[in-house]
C-alpha cells in the first residue's frame, strides 16, 4: 500500500513522491525513488554517517529520517554541495578532499563532506579536537582519518584566506 504523496525539496528542486511505502527512510527515497544515490547506505542505524544530509538546515542521518515526516522540508544532499546553486563545480571541501588524498574507496566520502561543510559553516577555524568530534559520527575504514583531517585543515585555511580577500 502506497502512502500519501510526499512533497519535498531536494537541493532546491521540488519533488513529489507518490509511491513510497510506509516506513521508507529519507535515504531510501533519495536513492531509489529520486535517483540521488550519492548518500550512502552502510549501516542504516545511524552509526556510520555515510547517509548524512541536511534537513531544514540540520545535519542528520537520512537513514533515520522517516521519509513521510519530511513533507515540506528542504533537503540538501551531496549532489547539492557544489560551488554554485545548481550543485555543479566542486565545493571547497570537495576540492580539499581531493587535494589532501582523503578519498580512497570513497564510500564514506559524501557523508563526511556534508559533515565537514557543516562544521566549517559553524566554526571556520576549528581546532583538532573539534574537528575530530565533528566527524566522529562518520566512520571511515580506509584512511584512518589522517588525510581527512588534513583536508579539513586545508579547506578551513582556504575559506579563511578567501574570506580575508573579500
Amino acid at each position: 500500500m502506497a502512502s500519501e504523496p510526499l512533497n519535498l525539496s531536494v537541493n532546491g528542486r521540488p519533488h513529489r513522491v507518490v509511491d513510497a511505502l510506509p516506513g521508507e527512510s529519507l535515504l531510501f527515497v533519495l536513492r531509489e525513488r529520486l535517483g540521488l544515490a550519492g548518500s550512502k547506505n552502510a549501516c542504516e542505524e545511524g552509526e556510520c554517517g555515510s547517509c548524512t544530509v541536511r534537513v531544514d538546515g540540520r545535519l542528520v542521518c537520512s537513514c533515520l529520517v522517516l521519509a513521510a515526516a519530511t513533507d515540506g522540508s528542504e533537503v540538501t544532499t551531496i549532489e547539492g554541495l557544489g560551488s554554485d546553486s545548481s550543485g555543479a563545480g566542486l565545493a571547497d571541501v570537495q576540492q580539499a578532499f581531493l587535494d589532501a588524498g582523503a578519498v580512497q574507496c570513497g564510500f564514506c566520502t559524501p557523508g563526511l563532506l556534508m559533515a565537514v561543510d557543516q562544521l566549517l559553516d559553524d566554526d571556520p577555524a576549528p581546532d583538532d579536537l573539534t574537528v575530530r568530534e565533528a566527524i566522529s559520527g562518520n566512520l571511515c575504514r580506509c584512511t584512518g582519518y589522517g588525510r581527512i583531517l588534513e583536508a579539513v585543515d586545508l579547506a578551513a585555511a582556504r575559506r579563511g584566506s578567501s574570506d580575508d580577500s573579500q
Partner: peptide, 23 residues
Amino acid sequence: DDAPRPDGVPKVTGDFAFSSDLW
C-alpha cells in the same frame, strides 16, 4: 608523483556508482 585519483571527482560529488547504487 602525488598523482590525484582519477575517480576522485565522482567520489566527492556523489556520482561514483558503487555496487549498491546500481539501478
